[in-house]
């Protein structure tokens, strides 16, 4: 998979710039992250069976059971996000020593949401989101909002084939806005990856 990353994101000079941007902003979004084969994976995921995860006071979405994937291309992508080379790539951009914590593959459709009550990390982490969403509009809902106790500070809209890296301090909480009927069957599909920050 590493070879399928859009070439420019692997160039030393560009990585240097990305790293500087991340240092300033605490996040970076890389659009068109993979160069090829990603449409095929998207359509496979559209037809994969996701399990409903529903706690009315916390969240509603669908999740793919990663122990139960048989499609080689999906497995390859999951393994890539868990791999040492991907970890090193994220370390290079963030300039932070990391260890892999967690990966979830989730799908959000109409009537899905996550609330602020949802379990939130007790420590600073690095969040990485690889997005395979349908063509999305803000009016559908589904915007991921990061906020402190006082103000909303960061919004993440679904963008197909984008990789977002975010430094998430423990005091930052988030929710995914309820997806309404304007979304008409479109979905958000995301690999949600977390890295612990090493001391």
């Amino acid at each position: 998979m590493f070879k399928k990353i859009t070439k420019i994101y692997l160039e030393s000079e560009v990585k240097q710039q990305m790293s500087e941007f991340f240092d300033e902003e605490n996040f970076i979004q890389l659009n068109n992250f993979f160069e090829k084969d990603i449409d095929k994976i998207k359509s496979k995921l559209n037809y994969s069976k996701f399990d409903l995860k529903y706690n009315p006071m916390k969240y509603k979405f669908k999740e793919l059971d990663l122990k139960n994937i048989y499609d080689l291309e999906i497995i390859e992508l999951v393994e890539f996000f868990k791999s040492k080379e991907f970890l090193e790539y994220i370390e290079e951009i963030t300039q932070i020593d990391l260890s892999f914590k967690d990966l979830n593959l989730r799908k959000y459709l109409q009537s899905d949401f996550t609330l602020l009550h949802d379990n939130q990390e007790k420590e600073d982490i690095i969040e990485v989101i690889f997005d395979l969403s349908d063509n999305w509009k803000e009016e559908f809902g589904g915007i991921l909002t990061y906020l402190t106790k006082d103000e909303e500070i960061f919004y993440l809209s679904p963008i197909f084939n984008s990789l977002t890296i975010l430094y998430k301090p423990e005091y930052l909480i988030k929710y995914l806005k309820y997806i309404n009927n304007k979304s008409k069957g479109k979905n958000i599909i995301r690999f949600e990856i977390k890295f612990d920050i090493e001391d």
Partner: peptide, 9 residues
């Protein structure tokens, strides 16, 4: 109105 809601509480 259309698209409005009040989730579980």
């Amino acid at each position: 109105e259309n698209t409005n809601y009040l989730l579980c509480h």
